[in-house]
Design a protein around this nucleic acid. Structure first.
Lengths: 198, 198, 198, 198
DNA sequence: TATGAATGAGGGTTCATTCAT
DNA sequence: AATGAATGAACCCTCATTCAT
């Protein structure tokens, strides 16, 4: 029962949150979307906040499977990262409806340490995984030697930022193309190698 | 009076919103922060939403003065962009407290067309100004020929994304340094030149 | 539950409205009078206005049962109308506390078409029923031939007007007596027979 | 100034009250209608309630001039009363817009003794004047002997009640005609002469 | 497990009234 | 005399949460 209800409620809540934001969404709406009664929600979640917290946990797991898959592929790292970029872009487009939830978590993270820690945890893992991969590629001579961690930060930032611009004008931005080309460049010319400018 | 009260209320509202988000903030809080009574707020704004809308208009004006200043400087474009990046980073750090408002606007933009239009308008201007500058630099031979508009998109995205990562862990990310080095690289190796990878 | 709560709330609201008028009455007062919480009222009525509308529907049903009973009685029509008049007067006195609600509906009707239609509907039914009875009595030779509809209007008007005067000074006006005597006269000397005066 | 402003404000208030009722009308609305500022109203009236009280005083003076004129006319009383009825009906139609105010005063009177006293005072004067006239006519043999006071009550009630029905459906009720015919009848067959029915 | 019914706490908004100018 | 500006006091309505069944 629990194993069945909890994802059902989370899915319903995500739909409702995506449509109107955390604050505007009412427990009534979530219940309706889930096909349950309001009171039933409370059998599985102690509060609205608990639902948000549960979503927070799952929301930032997206893409980790794919990231993990990067490690085991046989292709050259550059190639792997490019196609991973493409997949991330695709996934973004598929889940566009839920983008607002991510931004709302950013806002929450900026305000509340507890949320911040969770979100940060995600980016740390993300960054570490990416950096490890890049470091390996450097070690293996596939990429120019550079600060792998900083490169990871730059790549992640780039994708995050593109997400914002794409959300604002999906038709006006070739998300995949721009991302791929920029990642390609950055892999070939890692920024940490460049001379700091004063 | 209006010229006096409106900025006063907006400033108060921003402080309150930064602290608790749009939804949680109460008109009472804003009034208190502004040193006014709740009813007085309604002499100048028709609703809480109207205050948010007013902030939306002003929020994304930040940094435009500096962007405009880029045009008139005598330095080489690369140099100008690098130091502009530095100033943006500095400004970000100075206004860190209000970052959550920006993320909340992103969430709102993802949900409401009217907000989206305003925010998009900002990024369009931002991107145009930057692209124009880059195009000029390319024309003058200061930068390698490339797709100036796409380069602008990449630069903006990078800075936006770095903002998120820095917000999550200010101490763990040398915002200025990473930004400057990445911008430097991208200017020297504009991504649009690279061959798309299939 | 609904079948139980709705009359309960309407009764409470009538009491509160009778005491202070529609505008002054607070939902809190009605809730208290009904022994419920304020929020519970909203489970059954969408708004204060909806409660008033519900009362409007029931308020002008008073006396219709008795009016219907007029048809089936075996007594002569004159007799029936006289004793009906007496009962109406009695009922008025019994429900004196709610008179102000009726006047308030008159005021509302004068201002809002939708209320007017409801109230008018009541008087139309009232007038039709009375006119039909009078017409029958004329046909049967019990009453002098005359304009039954106009006579109905006059009778109703008379009772309505007496209600106002009696409300202003109950002790100073023998409501039943005056009403009965006037009705008696009008039945015997129906006005429509008289020559219009120029 | 006062002599100028006070009628101006009362006229404005009556317009606003007629449109939306006492409760819904805002001081702001009245001020606007009067072409004054809200604060200025308070130079002439201590409160909204004071404005209503002032209107109460003037509202029920309508028709008294004409009633007084009845005394001095040279025509037969019956004739005078009929043409007075016609004038009252005409006046009613001319001031139809303000009818709702009258009903609202009835509602207020039913609830508040102080208002009731004022309204009752009006009807008492009205009834006395009419009864005196009728008594004189009886004395002079112009009318059949009867209870002049009760006849006055019946006449007044009839006109009051007709007002309600006419307000509900002006097109469907020949106010003047019905009133005149009924008054004519009642003058010729005064109810108090009829035998009470048991 | 599920829910219909109920509510306490609260928040946005309104408005009569005041007062300094 | 007149008013722009300000506000305290309410009031309607909402909603997360509880609980008896």
């Amino acid at each position: 029962m629990r194993a069945e209800r909890i994802p059902q409620i989370i899915a319903a809540a995500m739909t409702v949150f995506a449509w109107g934001g955390f604050a505007q969404a009412r427990m009534e709406d979530i219940a309706q979307e889930a096909g349950l009664s309001k009171a039933t929600l409370y059998l599985y979640f102690a509060s609205k906040e608990a639902i948000i917290a549960a979503i927070l946990q799952s929301y930032f797991e997206r893409g980790f499977d794919e990231l993990a898959a990067l490690d085991t592929s046989a292709q050259p790292v550059t190639q792997r990262l490019i196609s991973w970029t493409r997949r991330r872009a695709q996934e973004l487009q598929d889940n566009a409806a839920f983008l607002s939830i991510g931004f709302e978590f950013h806002a929450l993270a900026a305000r509340h340490a507890s949320t911040r820690e969770v979100v940060q945890g995600y980016y740390v893992r993300y960054r570490s995984a990416l950096a490890a991969l890049l470091a390996q590629a450097m070690e293996w001579g596939e990429l120019e030697n550079a600060n792998a961690d900083e490169l990871a930060v730059v790549l992640i930032s780039l994708l995050e930022g593109l997400t914002v611009l794409w959300m604002l004008n999906p038709a006006g931005l070739d998300l995949s193309g721009v991302a791929e080309r920029a990642v390609h460049t950055l892999l070939n010319h890692p920024p940490a190698n460049s001379q700091p400018v004063e």
